[in-house]
Amino acid sequence: MFNRTAIAPLEYTRKLWMRSWVGLTILFLYAPLIVLMIFSFNDSKRNVMWKGFTLKYYEKALNNDSLVEAMVNSLTIAFFATIVSLVIGALAAVMLWRFRFPFKGLVEGTMSLPIIVPEICLGVAFLIFFAKVDWPSDLPWPLNLSAITIAHITFCFPFVAMVVRARLASFNKEEEEAAKDLGATEWQAFRDVLLPHLKPSLVAGALLAFTLSLDDFVITFFTSGPDTITFPVKVYSMVRFSVTPEVNAASTILIVLTVALTFIALKYQGVKGISDAH
């Protein structure tokens, strides 16, 4: 940082205004989150003055049954949505990578639509769809979450397919042919040769799907009923009607969880993987 050599023409990052610009941008991105996390420990009902350290809002948040239930719902939905998205997404990627078939362009285009179509449109589409087919809403837990889970899978699996397909591009098909020449069946070649090659992209895809599902508010807002509140929907109603420090505490827990997941992903891909991925 305090390198004394002269700044070379292309070392833009070492110029002061450039550094301040990046610093201010990072501050803009992080300040709200850090303030929120600090004030979740503040012993005051209002968020402005620091009155002393307390964990009571964490206790309150964890004793707030509807908040905990919403969190459990969110994690359950994210768990199932991730598993199904992973399977469907990986299959879709293999299908597009390996085969020539009629209407391939159309299938490929349609598959990218859930990514492009605005969330609000997808949300109302599921609202209408589940109303039209009379999807049962009084099933026991966790089956009552099925409608939300289905909606989440629809917008998660194209992302998984994208990640897996990028990885497939670097697969040497000769390896698979060699396995088959040596007597492996189609399934064995898939399981023992292709799948291990895909593993990093499957981990990345799973984490992406999990975060997308956990993060989603708009689509869930249209598919959830009174008994199927997810964490974002719960926070939304708390923010709308009564801001309480409990929201800060619950949010901090989720932020920490997200950061932890990101670092797990980094462990798999390596920090360098981030800049190489583009």
């Binding site: 993060d215 974002p232 800060n248 997200t258 993987g273 981030i274 800049s275």
Partner: peptide, 24 residues
């Protein structure tokens, strides 16, 4: 990679929480 991570990390954080934090 660390600068990129710095930009990407908020993107992974829940949209509602980020909006709420900014509102506060």
């Amino acid at each position: 990679p660390w600068l990129l991570l710095g930009i990407m990390l908020p993107f992974w954080t829940n949209l509602l929480i980020r909006t709420y934090a900014l509102m506060a």
